[in-house]
């Protein structure tokens, strides 16, 4: 295990940011710390990096007790949401910073910077200032800068949070590919469940200072440990007292589905290739159903249509009673 967090508690005044958190983050993997804003995930990352200190508990990094080590001695790479570029230095100088501090020979630094800039596709920008780069390019530079010192772990704090949707999507795909190339143990914080599901090997769901669940993306999506995890990883709707994903609801215009609830469509909303249908059942539930546009057209769904809805056989619903 690469990073061992044991019984870490952190308070800011009366506010408990982390409460008795214990997590093992495996070597060589890409792990996401996922949770809502203010849930403590960034605090945990900063404690691992040594930028904050835990009130209680210990941190081990690659077998080294790091609890009381200052940030500069932990040999972790850290990437910030707002890039934290050194504005007065060129891109190459930014990347070289950590190596210059370690007093590496000049030609070695030059070689390594060149290699890293190629890795992040910024080689033609080496002599520009960060202010001449776009947000996505700045973040790639920050990543190269963090990787330059060959850190034991790479920590990214909402790395794509300040970027627009398209660049974000590109960068996270690129991060996944980069990780497959470099294989450095990577932990990144995000509040975007899609990002976590798409990029990571493992997800740690953190809410209100506690770990809710740890598992692979598939695991978490298919077998959420509780309602919070289920709700946070995707949309949830209730059919016949069972909580399911809206795309795990079967809908038909005839009562052929066993145990289906009868209801009337109150709203049909087209979102791109998807159609989102709201069904008001006779039992008083407002069920959301997601289906493809062609499927919806084939069924001839419209507002006021009488339909029958039931969880798709094979989906894994959660009983509402288990809430909590």
């Amino acid at each position: 295990m690469s990073i061992e967090v044991r019984n870490v508690t952190k308070r800011f005044g009366d506010f408990v940011a982390l409460e008795d958190v214990t997590v093992s983050l495996p070597t060589g993997q890409l792990t996401a710390l996922l949770g809502p804003s203010g849930g403590g995930k960034s605090t945990l990352l900063r404690i691992i990096a040594g930028l904050d200190t835990a009130d209680e508990g210990t941190i081990d990094i690659e077998g080294t007790e790091a609890t009381n080590l200052p940030a500069r001695k932990r040999n972790v790479g850290f990437v910030f949401q707002h890039y934290a570029v050194f504005k007065h230095m060129t891109v190459a100088k930014n990347v070289a910073f950590g190596l210059e501090i370690r007093k590496r020979p000049k030609d070695e630094i030059e070689h390594r910077v060149d290699e890293l800039l190629r890795l992040v596709h910024l080689q033609q920008f080496a002599h520009r200032l960060p202010s001449q780069l776009s947000g996505g390019q700045r973040q790639r530079m920050a990543l190269a800068r963090a990787l330059a010192v060959e850190p034991k772990v790479l920590l990214l704090d909402e790395p794509f949070g300040a970027l627009d949707a398209k660049v974000r999507r590109e960068l996270r795909e690129w991060l996944r590919r980069l990780h497959d190339e470099v294989h450095v143990t990577t932990v990144f914080v995000t509040h975007d469940q899609e990002e976590a599901l798409e990029v990571s090997d493992e997800i740690v769901v953190i809410n209100e200072g506690r770990v809710e669940q740890i598992g692979s993306p598939d695991d978490l999506y298919d077998h959420p440990a509780n309602d919070f995890v289920m709700g946070f990883l995707g949309e949830v709707t209730t059919v016949n007292g069972q909580k399911v994903r809206p795309h795990d609801v079967d809908i038909s215009t005839t009562p052929i589905l066993a145990g289906a609830a009868q209801g009337t469509i109150s709203r049909v909303l087209r979102v791109g290739f998807q159609v989102r249908v709201n069904v008001l059942t006779d039992g008083g539930e407002d069920v959301t159903v997601e289906l493809t546009k062609s499927h919806a057209n084939a069924l001839g769904l419209g507002e006021g249509t009488t339909v029958w809805v039931t969880p798709t056989p094979g989906s894994i619903p959660r009983m509402v009673e288990k809430a909590g």
């Binding site: 040594g50 930028l51 940030a71 934290a84 050194f86």
Partner: peptide, 11 residues
């Protein structure tokens, strides 16, 4: 952030 970045790089 900028100071923290420098610290994490070993400064």
């Amino acid at each position: 952030d900028v100071e923290e970045a420098a610290a994490s790089l070993g400064a």
